[in-house]
């Protein structure tokens, strides 16, 4: 169940300003970890903007996810600096380790693997961000250990 009260609070924060729709979507995404459909409908109604505008924005910006994401968000930077230093290999290793592809969530809902086109920490590449924590200069050999930190303490984890 999506708590629409939370959505209303966010809309309230922007005083129902139509032009703040992008910021509202960002805050909703931060609150729910994705953009629930009900929340988007609510935003459309409250701001009195057509759903076409909401949908167009939500699908245009890559920061938005329309499906629920995992507990841990693993973001692999694919910026140029990271790329030339081996980011594709790091991504491949993470995908192998978690048995998902970029953009997907593990079946146990623990991890979502995403890519981003540069986070502006280019000197640290290849760079992986897990739940907002920066892991710089990662090579394929470090991946298992890095992910291990975030796996649930009990059980086999995400694999």
């Amino acid at each position: 169940m999506v708590e629409l009260g939370k959505v209303d609070q966010i809309i309230e924060k922007y005083a129902g300003d139509k032009t703040s729709v992008l910021a509202i979507l960002q805050d909703v995404q931060a609150a729910f970890n994705y953009l629930p459909r009900e929340a988007m409908n609510r935003i459309g109604e409250k701001l009195e903007i057509p759903m076409t505008q909401v949908a167009s924005l939500a699908t245009f910006f890559h920061a938005f996810s329309l499906t629920p994401r995992g507990k841990n968000i693993v973001t692999v930077c694919m910026g140029t600096a990271c790329h030339v230093r081996g980011a594709p290999r790091v991504l491949a290793e993470i995908e192998r380790e978690l048995a998902v592809k970029g953009g997907e969530t593990t079946s146990d809902g623990e991890f979502t693997v995403e890519t981003v086109n540069c986070v502006g920490a280019c000197a640290l590449g290849p760079l992986v961000i897990v739940n907002g924590n920066y892991h710089g200069n990662i090579n394929t050999a470090d991946v298992v250990e890095m992910l291990h930190e975030y796996k649930p303490a009990t059980g086999e984890g995400a694999k």
């Binding site: 459909r37 057509p50 759903m51 076409t52 505008q53 909401v54 949908a55 167009s56 699908t59 245009f60 329309l66």
Partner: peptide, 25 residues
């Protein structure tokens, strides 16, 4: 009517009703 819009971006761009669902509006 505002029933159709441009969704996605790049080569994954579509003109369709919101989220490709039956066009509510």
């Amino acid at each position: 009517a505002k029933a159709l819009t441009m969704e996605g971006r790049g080569t994954e761009t579509y003109f369709q009703p919101p989220f490709g669902e039956p066009a509510k509006d």
